[in-house]
Every structure is written in structure tokens, then in C-alpha cells.
Design a protein around this nucleic acid. Structure first.
Lengths: 343, 343
DNA sequence: TTGTAAGCGTTATCAC
DNA sequence: GTGATAACGCTTACAA
């Protein structure tokens, strides 16, 4: 591969402006000590030569890159694409650029992490998938902070920001039970992901404590198509038996459930069967669905993620400060009948 | 800001392995001439020191960064977030990293472009917003190719990939007319965007040619909430008068229209009123909507965008090859009554 | 305020 | 195949 056409350097600008090369650097550094007239002369020369400073070169000497890596699971789940958007916006506001990676569902993100660590990024956010302890050790050796977003790794003390999935699941469970549901179906998500498991456990324990006639579950694959296919198969018999309520561990699967229940089985929600999801994605809140769910407060979660990265050179949080458990917002919705009393 | 903890360098690895520094570089360069045993020794030393090559430094000498910038409009429009996802995936497959920028709706992207150009990126993709001729000139001076995605800039010869919006709009118009629609409402999008205008024009000319009882239009703001509010206001009178058909220039606004028509006015689609959108986003194809629309073939459009960037050092396309007009896929859907005959 | 000189961590070039 | 040495384009002392 041939190198691209070369760009103008600070030396060329310096020569054209009749100053020294470091002066050019100063002219582009906010707050550097340089006379106004000299700066103007330099900027004019720079414009003439189409010069802009080369971030890679400056980062080499200054040892700061202003870049962060965001490694995300499949962006086809709206929760992750909404999160990615907020990351890009908030990092941009904080004067950082985002190097974006995507990892296929159910694969570990070691490869992406190794790639990211070749860049002198100021930090790495991992929103999905698992990683080996090897890359974690390497990130520590490199001095690059990693924050897990919406994940936790059991048995590690990695910094992480996540919603209180367990309490959120329990909240859904109590709400459905109070609405009269006694038999349940749980549509499970990514078996690797800690979030799915936490939501399921919270839900299960809550309804079991309150009393139930049975809890079944099926693997929904965390995606619309996965859940749709699983539902069609599960209720595919000649006279399918429906539970009182279905809890899908995320909204995109809950939407798939709603579509299957209505289109294929002609059921009304919530009159014939109750339904709830988790995440609070926009699509689930349209009038067509009005999903009962728990919203993950993305803006806040992203903000706390930035805090944990300690990008501005503050102390890197540790101990309790390294794990942020954020309560989700319960949204009653209209796929579970509401009640007068609180739950 | 203090520099981060320093990482191991190739010199330290070289010393530990008892070789010269360039050998370390070779050990990490696929296809470099180095003996297997020496490479193994070096890789072992590297592992011990947590060494990985620094991309910034290597890019400085090799003048290639393997990074591309993607500047996108608001990712809250699913078309753009789906596109961003595909860009990330396809660039990753091509061995490139994506530096992601987001630009607020209705703002030009000069600022983001200037930022991106400070990085020695191999190319820039712009999926939104307008830009000044000044930054275009600068990109040429820097030798960084720019490709517009789903946009064209009138009066410029910037490389661009876009769907045939005009023919797509016309197709929708003919289909609705064939289904019996004679009075129309167009929900317009971003007044800055060329795509919205092209779709609207194609639609308008097609139905005018076929004969109509009137075409009205309103500004939908390109977003769900914008279109929802506009629709509520537009049909807010005591006895609103509805057209035969509504064409929203993108799916996300069409979805908003469907919600307002059904929830607020109790209309059935398509029995009481026809509706169509544009883009073919996943959400519009759920059974709850089954939107009549034109799908933009994102995968193919992204592939052609990569081609135009000529990342592998091939000749940079020019002339006719610089503009790719891709036909959209018409999706009949169920929000316009189907017909036996073609349209 | 300004210029000189010394890095920053790689790859490229060239002998050996 | 391997090692010395010179870039790459910038920032940061340090001196003037």
C-alpha cells in the first residue's frame, strides 16, 4: 500500500511564515505564550498550505491521545445503539474522540480489545461480551483503564456501571403477580451475559416468594428474530397452552413476543396475556406496544462510565467507587394491567 | 493533565530478548523476514512486558493509520444507526478502525470534519449534514478522500453514494395512485437534506402526472417526535379533513403518522387512509406496522462507499465512477392496498 | 515571547 | 536474516 499524498508539516508552515517550528505548535495550542501578530501570521500560512496539526505526532510527544475505545455488542439491539450514540455525544462534549468496535453476539471481545490497546487510547469501554483475564492483565500493564458498561465479570474487580437488573426483574415480577398472574414464561437472553441472568433471577425469586403455579423458560437469543422463532416454536402445537404472563429479559424480545402473540395467536395484551420487557428502548414505548418495562437510564449510566474512566487525570476510583449500581426506572406501560395500589 | 503510566516500548522488549529493536518491529509485522525462533523469543519477551506496538508511532513512520472517520447525523434515526453499525462491521472486516463522530441535526459538520482531519485517517465518510467548500478544499489539500453517504452536494463533484430517492418517491406515488388515492399529504423531512427533497420531488411529479385532487405538505422535522407533533397540530381541528394518502419521506416519521392516525383519530390503515414511508428500517417492517416503503440497501451502499474510498491504494475513482446511484427496493407492505397489476 | 535541541516509539533504508 | 541509523511530525524543556 502506497502512503497517501503527504500533508504539510509544521516545518513548512514555519518556513512560509518565517518563524521557528515550535512557534507553529504554539499557535495551535490554546493558551500558549505567543504574540497575537505572530499567531495570525502563522495561521494565515497554515491556511495557505492546508495545514492542520497531526494528532498522532502530537500524541506521541505528549503521551495523550484524547481517544477512547468503545467496544459494543451487536448494534442491532437498540439498547446498544442508543448507548453508542450517547457515548459518542458525551465523549465528544468531553473533548474525546470515539474509536468504535463491534463484536458479534456471543463472542468474546479479546480480539477487539487487543486491537484497541494498540492505540494509546485514554480508556476503553466494553458494553458487551466477555473477555479473558489475559487481556485484562495486559490493559493493566498498559495503564489503560477499562470500564464495563451494563456487564459485570464475576470474580473480577473490574470497574463497571450497570443497572440494578435483579431489582428491576423483581419489580416486574411483583407487578405481574399483583395483577393476578400466577403462571409465567421467561424469555431468556444471552447465556453469556450477566445482565440477562440477573434479571431472570430477580424476577424468578420475586414471583416464587409470592407464590406461583409454575415458571417455564425458553432461550430467546437476545434478538428480535431469535425470540420470534423461539416463540413460534414454543407455542407451535395444535392447542398451545399460554401462561398468564411472559417476561422477556429485554424489550426487543418482548416486542417479538407481542408480535407473535397478536399476529399468530390473535391474543390481546394484556387482556389475554400479560407481557413485560426490560431496557426502555424507544421502540417499545410507541403506542403500538406501550411496553411494561424497566428503563435503563442510559444518559446517567454513560455519565458515570466517563467518571470511572477518570479521563481528566483525577484519581482512578477503586473499592466501592469502582462499581456503580444504578436503579432502573419502572414504566408501568399498558401490557400489564395497572392497579390502584403501588407494588 | 498528567501523562498516563508509560507502556513498554520495543526497545525494552529488544533488550529483554537480546535482539535489536527493529527485530521487534519485524516480529510484529506479518510477512517480515525474521527467523521463527527469534520471533518466538521476542513474542515471549513482549508478553512478559505486556508490550503491544503503538499504532500512533508506527503510523507516523509508515504514513498509514488504518483509521477512517465516519461522521453521522443523529443516530436516533434508525436508518443512520443501522448504517453506522454496518460501517463499523465492514470497515472492521477490511482491517480498518472507525473513528465515530456525531453531528446534531440541522448543523453543518465542518467542526467534526476539522477534528477528523487532524487524524491521519485514510478516509472520511459523511452521512449527514452539509459542509462548507472550505473544508472540502482542505481535505483535498490533505489528500484525504471524502465520500458522502446518502447525500449529495449540488454543484460539487464530491464522491457520493446514494439511493435513487427520486425514483423511489415516484414509485410510492404511482403505487398509491394505482390504489385509488387522489388527495395527498407529504410529510417533509430535513429541509437541508438533499434526500428528503429528492424523494418529495419524485413523489410529487409522479402523482401530478397521473392526476390528483391536491397535494399538501407539512414539515415533519425528520424525527418521530417532530412528525408526531406536526401531525397532531395539522389534524388538530374539530373536524379534521384527511387526505386519501400520506407519504412521509422517511420511515421513522411514517411510524409516527401511523401512531397518531390510529391512536388519536381511530383510523384504520390502509382502509381509511393510506400511508407510506422510505428507508426500510427494521422497526417499520414489524407486523405492527408493515409499512409500505422503499428500502435503502444499506449493505450494498456501504460496500460501494468503501470502494469509493479506495483504501487499498487503488486508483481513486473519478468522473461517473465517483457517484453511485443505487436503486431502492420497493416493499409493498400493507399500509397501501395491494393490486393485482404491477405499477 | 521566541528559538534551539532533544525526545516520543515506530518503520524504512541500507549495509552486513 | 539481522542490526545500525535515519526519518516520521510533533511537544517540551531550556536558553536566549
Amino acid at each position: 500500500m502506497p502512503p497517501r499524498k503527504s500533508r504539510a508539516t509544521s516545518f513548512q508552515v514555519a518556513r512560509l511564515a518565517g518563524v521557528s517550528q515550535p512557534s507553529v505548535s504554539r499557535a495551535f495550542t490554546p493558551g500558549a505564550s505567543i504574540s497575537k501578530e505572530k499567531r495570525d501570521k502563522i495561521l494565515a500560512a497554515a491556511k495557505e498550505l492546508n495545514y492542520v496539526p497531526n494528532v498522532f505526532a502530537s500524541s506521541l510527544s505528549s503521551a495523550r491521545s484524547n481517544m477512547v475505545a468503545v467496544i459494543s455488542g451487536s448494534l442491532s439491539n437498540p439498547f446498544y445503539s442508543e448507548s453508542m450514540q450517547v457515548f459518542i455525544e458525551q465523549f465528544q462534549d468531553a473533548g474525546r474522540q470515539v474509536l468504535a468496535f463491534s463484536v458479534e453476539a456471543n463472542r468474546d471481545c479479546d480480539e477487539a480489545l487487543m486491537l484497541a490497546m494498540r492505540y494509546p487510547v485514554d480508556g476503553i469501554v466494553v458494553t458487551s461480551a466477555s473477555m479473558s483475564s489475559e487481556v485484562v492483565r495486559m490493559s493493566e500493564g498498559l495503564g489503560i483503564p477499562i470500564v464495563m458498561y451494563n456487564r459485570r465479570v464475576v470474580g473480577s474487580n473490574l470497574a463497571n456501571v450497570r443497572c440494578d437488573h435483579e431489582e428491576g426483574g423483581a419489580r416486574i415480577g411483583r407487578f405481574m403477580h399483583a395483577a393476578g398472574a400466577r403462571s409465567f414464561l421467561i424469555v431468556r437472553g444471552d447465556p453469556q451475559g450477566s445482565s440477562s441472568g440477573d434479571r431472570e433471577r430477580g424476577f424468578r425469586e420475586a414471583v416464587e416468594r409470592l407464590g406461583t403455579r409454575g415458571i417455564e423458560d425458553l432461550a430467546g437469543g437476545s434478538s428480535y428474530s431469535g425470540a420470534r422463532n423461539a416463540m413460534i416454536r414454543y407455542f407451535g402445537g395444535p392447542a398451545p397452552h399460554f401462561p398468564d404472563a411472559i417476561f422477556a429479559v429485554n424489550d426487543i424480545m418482548a416486542i417479538a413476543c407481542a408480535d407473535v402473540l397478536r399476529e399468530i395467536h390473535g391474543l390481546r395484551i394484556p387482556e389475554d396475556i400479560m407481557l413485560a420487557g426490560f431496557d426502555g428502548i424507544r421502540e417499545g414505548q410507541r403506542p403500538a406496544y406501550g411496553l411494561t418495562t424497566v428503563r435503563q437510564p442510559i444518559e446517567r449510566m454513560v455519565r458515570e462510565t466517563l467518571e470511572l474512566l477518570a479521563l481528566d487525570g483525577g484519581p482512578i476510583p477503586n473499592g466501592d467507587r469502582k462499581a456503580r449500581l444504578i436503579p432502573g426506572d419502572f414504566i408501568p406501560g399498558k401490557t400489564v394491567p395497572g392497579l390502584a395500589a403501588g407494588t
